[in-house]
């Protein structure tokens, strides 16, 4: 084992702020990315369902005709 105690581990030989700063930001950002990806997935599903209801039964019969309502933008 590399460490004498847990406090020595958290101290990282005096470089705690640099080491833990790196790891915290890394995992924080990756977690944020995952949250955003899943949020986008949920939003897209809702938006597309609304859109399909607006288009009605025409969907699938033609490839985006002139009467097609616009898809709401992402944001």
């Amino acid at each position: 084992m590399q460490w004498e105690s847990w406090s020595a581990f958290w101290d990282m030989g005096g470089a705690a702020i640099f080491v833990w700063g790196s790891y915290a930001v890394t995992f924080g950002l990756l977690a944020l990315e995952l949250v955003l990806v899943f949020q986008r997935r949920r939003d897209t599903t809702r938006r597309l369902l609304r859109w399909r209801r607006a288009v009605g039964k025409e969907v699938g019969k033609h490839d985006g005709g002139e009467f097609e309502p616009a898809l709401e933008s992402e944001r």
Binding site: V37, R41, T44, L48, W51, R52, V59, G60, G64
Partner: peptide
């Protein structure tokens, strides 16, 4: 994460098709 991100993008692009309706 890329596979997860690409899925809604595909749905949006293919929204005119029958299979997207089933998925939704």
């Amino acid at each position: 994460v890329v596979l997860w991100r690409v899925r809604p993008m595909i749905l949006e692009r293919e929204r005119h098709t029958e299979w997207v309706g089933t998925v939704l």
